[in-house]
Design a protein around this nucleic acid. Sequence first.
DNA 1: TATGAATGAGATTTCATTCAT
DNA 2: TATGAATGAAATCTCATTCAT
Lengths: 204, 204, 204, 204
Amino acid sequence: MPKISAQQRQARRLQILQAATRCFARKGFHGASMEDIVRESRLSPGAIYCYFRGKRQIVAAIAQERHSRESALLAGLAASPNLAEGLDGLARSFFAMLQDPGEKQRRKVSIQVWAESLHDRHIRQIVERGLRQRDPLVRSLRDGQRAGQLPAGLDAESLSRVLLALLQGFILQQAWEPDLDAGGYLETVTRLLGCVIRKPADVL
Amino acid sequence: MPKISAQQRQARRLQILQAATRCFARKGFHGASMEDIVRESRLSPGAIYCYFRGKRQIVAAIAQERHSRESALLAGLAASPNLAEGLDGLARSFFAMLQDPGEKQRRKVSIQVWAESLHDRHIRQIVERGLRQRDPLVRSLRDGQRAGQLPAGLDAESLSRVLLALLQGFILQQAWEPDLDAGGYLETVTRLLGCVIRKPADVL
Amino acid sequence: MPKISAQQRQARRLQILQAATRCFARKGFHGASMEDIVRESRLSPGAIYCYFRGKRQIVAAIAQERHSRESALLAGLAASPNLAEGLDGLARSFFAMLQDPGEKQRRKVSIQVWAESLHDRHIRQIVERGLRQRDPLVRSLRDGQRAGQLPAGLDAESLSRVLLALLQGFILQQAWEPDLDAGGYLETVTRLLGCVIRKPADVL
Amino acid sequence: MPKISAQQRQARRLQILQAATRCFARKGFHGASMEDIVRESRLSPGAIYCYFRGKRQIVAAIAQERHSRESALLAGLAASPNLAEGLDGLARSFFAMLQDPGEKQRRKVSIQVWAESLHDRHIRQIVERGLRQRDPLVRSLRDGQRAGQLPAGLDAESLSRVLLALLQGFILQQAWEPDLDAGGYLETVTRLLGCVIRKPADVL
DNA sequence: TATGAATGAGATTTCATTCAT
DNA sequence: TATGAATGAAATCTCATTCAT
């Protein structure tokens, strides 16, 4: 018989995660102290420890949330019936992401998750789970090859890595230069990929 | 009047930076303590402070060295007389990098530099200086367009970002999966770019 | 106007004290947290504060209960019409104590009360009240001397301390070694005291 | 090549342990904070952690030192050629202990070690090592029995416990009442034991 | 220059207690 | 009375840095 509802509890959790995200974006995982998060969340130290075992758990929760979101982008590409449409979908997701006001901060946090994953086991596992989203993408590309939408000579594995790199590189560059020309980037990517991807219509 | 020669001094500096790189690769900038670096370098705390103002300066020196190296890759591409050859040069540099035994650690450090640059002014400046290496690349691409090696419709700015992203994404993925198929990646990238880049011979 | 009967209130108090005793025996006064006691008592923090001002009051209440029990042992010795019988009574009380299933835990708590009394005023007062039970014992011993049951040369004050020490030392040793030979200990004590205590019959 | 000699290091260690002993005697293991010890030792927090891993290690070191001292008392009794002389030796050690100005505090600490040993594994081991000093005492008593200095009917094991209890009880009572009549206590104990112990001369 | 013991600000976390419900 | 989420003071410990030698 909890005093607060599961919904309220979830809201508090979110409140903490959002405050932490702001702090981490501003100062980094290590530069931001628990006290910073306490201040930013307008809670007390104790309250935060009611929701998270410690700072690492907060970082992990944020890493989780980050990679869920990014996996979703790739998953969308993989789930699409044909590659050309999938890329369009990716484009749309991209722009949706750009319009989200909090996304700027979250991108910074993503990059820190990458760095942290290199020496923190727990974070590493979370990131690896995200990376496994590349598998369905590879399968999807192979399907595309069989359907003649993609040249048979291309290595699907490597192509999936290229696509992922294009996403990762963009996240990185936009963190440094928030005003970069996202539309141009996307168009260029589309054009490059257009050389190798044939629309279903073209195949017929 | 230095008690030791400039050469000796330089050697000590390098000894510290190499020890620090190993520590940072293993535990991250924040996870590695000065004590770790002291132990790894087989020096004393005081000695290290004779060569660096503090931990941040060590991080900065390493960031500097990192970005010098990465800029060199891009610079090579930019400096090349024609794009196709430049890409080949990039490929060769890539493999040279892979063969360097210490590079595995350094790649991890690079990613941490990216993360650190998001909230550390000093590191940020170093990274930005590195990013400016994209400018000659853009000019080089525009030259290529004028020479007809590249379709006029392509946005050189965006293409340069794509090339950079392909480099960054590769560094990241290789940090997570050291045994990924670098050759396949490079081939796929070459093939994609081959669609838009015409060799000088073809132009004639 | 209490909402629950005095009887119910007393029962709740006991429930808390018993839970606290278990916790304290297991982890010590300081190692056991209020949360431990809350869990063990199956109540809520708030509920406990309805019955006790705070943790210190719980400790004090337990100390009180402890010293009441131990004083009773000495008091029994003092109250006895002659020393020999009194010692027999003490023996019986000893064994009664040993059979009590919860006593093992309580002995541990007693020792912690001793430690706590050394720097906590409140606990100290409780312990001192218990120590005053030695006074009637001294009087009883002096009566025994006058009655010829005890050599006149013995210092009653010191003998009372010896008797108390034998009790305290036993509690301590049994806390460390629960299976020590209590019967043997008692017999040896009796034999030693037998040298100086004459039974009334012998006096006549 | 340490900057300070082993002797200086030992001195610092002692400085910390003495400061800690004063704090612990005053406020108890848990009531005394590291800050208290820092202040009392006139060192810095960091300096203390150069010598001890943490507070528990300080407590353990003090427990060790305590039990070494107490074991020595028993060991002296055991090592003595005959029991009567051994008891005299114990008496002398007792008084030596009483004259030591710092001993008052240390006795308080001993009692806290007893309490702590009931739930701290490490401290428990230290105390148990101390308790094993009873073994040589038992052997010594059995030797005494064979030599006719002690009645054969007495249980040496139990008698050793009685002797230990007399020591423990005295420590406890003197912690509460520093001015108790130690001489009287000792005389009474000697008299009681005199009933069962025959001097070698008497045996002849 | 080099040493390494020492510094002390500051970080994370705990937990006795409170109070709105 | 009872609940339990929340409080916040305080505790332990770390670690970048300093400075007497």
